[in-house]
Amino acid sequence: MKSAKLAFGLICLAILAGNIWGMSRWSEARGVYDDICYLRQAHLFQRFGISGLDTNAVGDDDRYFEGKLKEIAFSEWKDPIRWPCHNPMPGGKVVLQYPPGTGFLLALFPEGHQVVPLYIAANLIVGGLALSAIAMARSLPSLIGAGVFGALAIGLMINPAKASYSVAPTMALCAVAGLLTAVWLSRDKRSVLLIALIGLLLGASVNLRLPNALLAAGYFLFLGIPFLWTRSLAIFVQGLAFGAGVLVGMAPTLAAQAINAGSALATTYGSADVVAPAFDLAVFVQYLRDMQIVLIVLAIGATLWLLWAGERHVRQAAFVVAGNLVVNLAFFMTHPIFTPYYVVPITMLSLWTLSFAQVLEPAAAPMAASVRNAAASLGPLPR
C-alpha cells in the first residue's frame, strides 16, 4: 500500500508540476471575448471596490475595456451596444452578462498578472485534495480509485479548464464540496454547520457560473424527499441550514442582478442565452464526441456501482450524486447550446464526492459488503 500511495502521489505531483510550468507561460491577451470581459469585472472591483458590482458601460470612463477591445482588433469598440459579453437592460444600462465571482477572484491579483495566479491557486487546491485522498485510502480498491481519479482531475485543470476563466475555480470548489459532502455523510450524527458550509460553497459557485445553481439539486432531493416521508425535525433543520447556506453564498450574484438588471431575480443574460429546454440531437451528438462523455460515463458508472455495492455512508453519497446527475444532465442535454465544459462541474463534484466517500470508508467495510453480496447471490442456505 505504501509503495502504491507513493507511486500515485508522484504521478499526481508530476502532472501538477507540468500544469504550473505550462500555465506560467500563458498570455492574458489570447483574443477571447470572455477573457477580457472577466478582466473588465476584475478591473471594476480594483477601481471601485464593492461598487464594482455595477458593470454599466458608463463605468468604463478610463477606457480600460475599449483598450482591451482594440488589443483583439474588435472593430466596434466605440459602441457599448456592440460590446461582447454585454447586454442592454430595460433601464438603458449596458452591462456585463456574467456573475461577479470570477472577476472578484481575478481582482485579488495585480493587473496584468491575474490569470496565471488564479489557475495556479485552483490547481494547488485540486492537487492537494487529490494527494489527501490518496493518503487517506485504506484499501487497495479505494487507493486505485483515488489515484486514477486524482491524476485525471489535475490533468483536467488545463483542458478543458482553460476554455473559460470560470471553470478552474469552479472545479476547485467542487473538489472541496465533494470532500465536505463525504465527511458530512460519514458521520452518524450529521453536523448542521457542515451541511450549511456545503451549501455556502455551492451557493458561492453560482457567482462563477449561473448554471452552478443546479449543483445543489441533489442535496435538496436527498434532504427533501425523506422529510416529506418522515416529517423529521432533524432533517428539516438540515435542509434549512443547507438552503440558507446556498442563499448566502449566491448573495453577490443576487446583488449584482439587482444593481444591473433591476431585480435580484432578473438575469443579465441576453435572449439568445435564455431559452426553453428542448432536446436537440445535434447537441447530444456533440457531447458523445467530446471528452465530457468520458466523465459522464465514469460518474454514472461509479454511482451505479456504489448504489449496489456501497456500505452505509458510501451508498448515501451515491444517492446524493444520483439525484444531482439526473437533474444536471437532464438540463444540459436539453440545453440547445454546447460548450466543452458544461457538464464538467457536475461530473467532477460527483466523482470527488464518491472518491472521498470511498477513502473515508473503514477498510473492513468493502470486504464485508462483498461477503454479504456473495452470500445473497447464493440464496437461502438449506436447513
Rank of each mutant, 00 (worst) to 15 (best):
A4E: 12
K5I: 10
F8N: 03
F8I: 11
C12N: 14
L13P: 01
A14M: 09
N19P: 01
G22H: 13
S24P: 06
R25I: 07
R30P: 06
G31S: 04
G31R: 05
D35N: 10
D35T: 14
A42W: 02
G49P: 02
I50G: 02
I50H: 05
S51I: 07
V58I: 15
G59K: 15
D61L: 11
R63D: 15
L69W: 09
A73M: 14
S75I: 12
D79C: 02
W83R: 04
H86A: 09
G92Y: 12
V95M: 01
L96G: 05
Y98G: 00
P99Q: 10
P100K: 00
G101C: 07
G103D: 02
P110Y: 10
V116K: 08
P117C: 03
P117T: 02
A121Q: 02
V126H: 00
G127L: 01
L129V: 00
S132G: 06
I134E: 01
S142E: 03
A146K: 01
F149T: 05
A153H: 06
G155P: 00
L173A: 12
C174R: 02
C174A: 13
R190W: 03
S191D: 08
L194F: 00
L194P: 00
I195C: 10
A196F: 13
L197N: 09
I198C: 06
G199V: 06
L201R: 03
N207Q: 03
R209F: 11
L214E: 00
A217V: 06
F222E: 10
P226S: 08
T230A: 13
R231H: 11
S232M: 10
A234P: 05
A244S: 13
G245F: 06
A266P: 00
G270W: 01
V275Y: 07
P277L: 09
V283T: 13
Q286N: 11
R289K: 15
Q292W: 05
L295D: 07
V297K: 07
W305L: 15
L307M: 12
G310H: 01
H313Q: 12
Q316H: 15
A318I: 09
A318L: 07
F319Q: 14
V320K: 06
V321K: 07
A322Y: 04
L325A: 02
L329V: 12
L329H: 04
A330R: 10
T334N: 15
H335F: 15
P336K: 10
P336G: 05
T339W: 10
V343Q: 03
L351E: 03
W352A: 11
L354H: 01
A357P: 00
A364C: 07
A368G: 08
A369Y: 02
S370R: 14
V371F: 06
A374C: 08
A375F: 10
A376F: 14
L378K: 11
P380F: 12
L381Q: 13
